[in-house]
Design a protein around this nucleic acid. Sequence first.
DNA 1: TGTTTCTATTAACATTGTTAATTATATTTG
DNA 2: CAAATATAATTAACAATGTTAATAGAAACA
Lengths: 196, 196
Amino acid sequence: MKNKEIQEKRMKEYFIQATRNILKSEGIKGISVRNIADQAGYSYATLYNYFKDVNDLVFLCVNDFQKECKEYTINQTSKTSDGIDKLKKIVMAYIGYFIEYPGIFDLFYIAPIGDFGTKQSTIDVINNSLDEVCETQWNYCITHNIYTSVQVGILKNKLKYTVIGLLLLYLNRRSPKSYSEFMNNANKEVEQLIRN
Amino acid sequence: MKNKEIQEKRMKEYFIQATRNILKSEGIKGISVRNIADQAGYSYATLYNYFKDVNDLVFLCVNDFQKECKEYTINQTSKTSDGIDKLKKIVMAYIGYFIEYPGIFDLFYIAPIGDFGTKQSTIDVINNSLDEVCETQWNYCITHNIYTSVQVGILKNKLKYTVIGLLLLYLNRRSPKSYSEFMNNANKEVEQLIRN
DNA sequence: TGTTTCTATTAACATTGTTAATTATATTTG
DNA sequence: CAAATATAATTAACAATGTTAATAGAAACA
């Protein structure tokens, strides 16, 4: 009876792995049932023995990406010591992650959430994505009296809306056109927010 | 030679009109070549005699919607006299417009812009959408020394990112869940931004 | 080994955007 | 006005999509 579960888990992992690869390389536009199944080494209909539909499958990648994203920001900022500077660098690294993998931004913030089919816990991970990445620095700032916890609460929201707004406009090719200009804007906005 | 142009313009208008109706009622998910052509009273292939593809057609609605959006904000704030209060109300009305027509938000900020096929002027309209709606109030604030023009430049950006971030998260069903909570958040954010 | 139960695959359907072939309608010309 | 031509609109067709139903294959068990 246990073998069954192990095998099922393994099969699911094959499909999830394939989905992650496609999301990272081709983005959401590259996602299709047949494409995923091909990369997983199975037929497209087999997928439906393990997942309700393709949307269900796609959102199962959120946890892995959030984990990867956090590690990414940690690695990019390991040399900086705790405090506001590090907070800023983490936020910029967070932005950098989605610039490098626009398909993951689509998944987190744009892909439609099925009327019911997407777990609340997944949505929670998305909503806390930026906060979680910054968590230790927020705590550091509170315990070292750089911010009050009320200020942190307000800042978290402002930062979230600003970062997502910036990314949406740039990744969806509204504005600005150039990467360097975008990074300028992002730097400026994050800077202004964090230095109160 | 002139008749031809008039007729062509009229035909285009039929399709654009149909596209606008669908966007306002069903949203972008309701857009399909056959659906548009049905509502326009023609066959689906006829559409290709007047438009490069369906994306081209969809983005032609941007100008109309921007105009409508501006009128919407004017009507909703006609009783308020110029100044910061009016500015805030206009921004909230702008938000309200996209809450009422989520499909238009999708068109403005989410729909993918073809590698080439979408006119730069259309993209400009989108990027200046909020600024244009607020224009007279920004000018009022500058001439009455409420803000400096430098401050206005900074505020415009902050406001844009915040409003779009707020709308994206709410309309795409990330957070918050309830309308009233969303309006609370939006009010708070806009308020904090505008009062320095 | 033979039967049953689960798993994977192929077939099939409806829907999508787009193009080619064909028919209907205007326009021009004799 | 009638015939020839150009233009506009429609149907047919294709490839790709998500999903379900029918089948074939493998595993488990008697």
